[in-house]
Amino acid sequence: MKRHFARVVLLVLCWSLVSVCWATIEAHPFPDDELRSRYHSLISELRCPQCLNTNLAGSDAMIALDLRREVHRMLLAGHSDNQIRTFLFERYGDFVLYRPRVTSRTILLWATPALLLCLGAFVFWRVVGAGVDRQRTPRKPGEAARLQRLLNDR
């Protein structure tokens, strides 16, 4: 009985090792840190074509795997970040860019923050400005004098 138990334990231990053997690490070696950081920023701002809302870095899809390898290869071959973005854009279109290009269709997207900031500044100016104005202007003629009298009486 005891021997059986030992065998089962051994078997379970062996099984647990199998998953470790199956695990693969996608090793993309880089000669220096600059290339590596460019690689990571590229794969985080490029979108996996198959997954609708995941970047290349976060996807296990086969196409993401292939595209990561391609980005790695192009970086090592000395391509610039923009060349790599263009390479993917030519094949997968705007879809692949999480940082959209500025075009007539996306101009609203880029301009909205500035527009909202202006709008906010305008509202702030009107609200605060109006408050300050009210504090400064006496409401009725003679009110300032009356106020002064009240203060003197105290």
Partner: peptide, 13 residues
Amino acid sequence: IEGKLAIDLGVYG
């Protein structure tokens, strides 16, 4: 095998 032609074609899967 490496999916290079597929990438040139803009294949998703």
